[in-house]
């Protein structure tokens, strides 16, 4: 027995787990799904990325200065901003900046509030708290932003007639865009609301199960989960609202005109 509250996994056990992918590959080959190649690539990527981040995190956790930890946080949110845009079908000039500002603004604000105001970690930049909390918030904000952005740009395109009807009847750009914006926000929030609805009944969230596996008391793990869910909900709402507002300002100009000409449809290969 070791001193840890959990069973560590060695390389041999890792390889054993990797054999599980044979199930997927066999299914794909038998049913000719054509997924075998992507499955293998994805497995290798996932394993390499996680092993690498394990090393990076070990290094980061040993740091006791805020600057490198914040640099990692910036890098993580930058990547989240870029990925949020890459899943959208239509883009406009400045979309990356808008997504970046929204992701960072929302996640830093909410994570900062949780670290300083709720959990009160000492010191506040302690990587053991900052990095995983920020990571979970970012993953969800990214989803919310790309869903909201996709819905908004799609709505502007599909409902151009309705928007221009309102404008030509004398609507301000805000009045003309309002329904599209609230629809985009609703779509951006749906995954979070759904997740909260069934949490603990249908799904046992990964962070909570992780803490339990690591030896935390279930009652404590559950409390962390509640805190993180509220953080995710707030950050997703903020991020989605931010990105929709910024996109609105690009696609509706100061002369109250709809600028569909600024939207560009991306070929599927670039999504």
């Amino acid at each position: 027995m070791n001193d840890l509250a959990y069973v560590p996994i060695d390389l041999r056990q890792l390889l054993l787990a990797a054999t599980l992918i044979v199930v997927n590959v066999a299914l794909s080959l038998a049913l000719r799904l054509g997924l075998a190649r992507s499955l293998l690539v994805a497995s290798v990527r996932m394993t390499a990325q996680l092993l690498l981040i394990g090393l990076v995190l070990a290094w980061v956790f040993a740091l006791e200065r805020p600057v490198p930890i914040l640099a990692i946080a910036l890098l993580m949110s930058g990547l989240a901003g870029v990925s949020a845009v890459q899943r959208t079908k239509r883009r406009f000039a400045g979309v990356y900046l808008d997504a970046l500002v929204s992701v960072m603004g929302a996640s830093f604000l909410v994570t900062g509030f949780a670290l300083l105001g709720i959990i009160r970690v000492e010191p506040w930049f302690d990587a053991q708290y900052l990095i995983p909390l920020l990571g979970m918030v970012l993953g969800n904000v990214l989803n919310g932003i790309s869903l909201a952005l996709d819905r908004f740009t799609e709505g502007v395109t599909q409902q151009r007639g309705r928007v221009e009807l309102l404008l030509s009847l004398g609507a301000t750009r805000w009045e003309a865009a309002h329904a599209l914006m609230s629809d985009a926000l609703r779509v951006g929030m749906i995954p979070t609301i759904n997740a909260m609805m069934v949490m603990g009944i249908v799904s046992l969230p990964g962070m909570m199960t992780g803490q339990i596996l690591a030896g935390a008391a279930p009652a404590d793990a559950v409390r962390y989960q509640i805190v993180i869910m509220f953080m995710i909900a707030a950050a997703t709402a903020l991020g989605a609202f931010g990105v929709v507002l910024l996109a609105y300002r690009r696609l509706f100009d100061a002369r109250h005109r709809l600028r569909v000409d600024r939207l560009q449809r991306m070929p599927p290969s670039r999504r």
Binding site: L167, S168, G170, T172, R255, H256, R257
Partner: peptide, 12 residues
Amino acid sequence: MPTYRSRVAYVP
């Protein structure tokens, strides 16, 4: 513009 468009009506 909303005032302008209230005066100048466009029916597509």
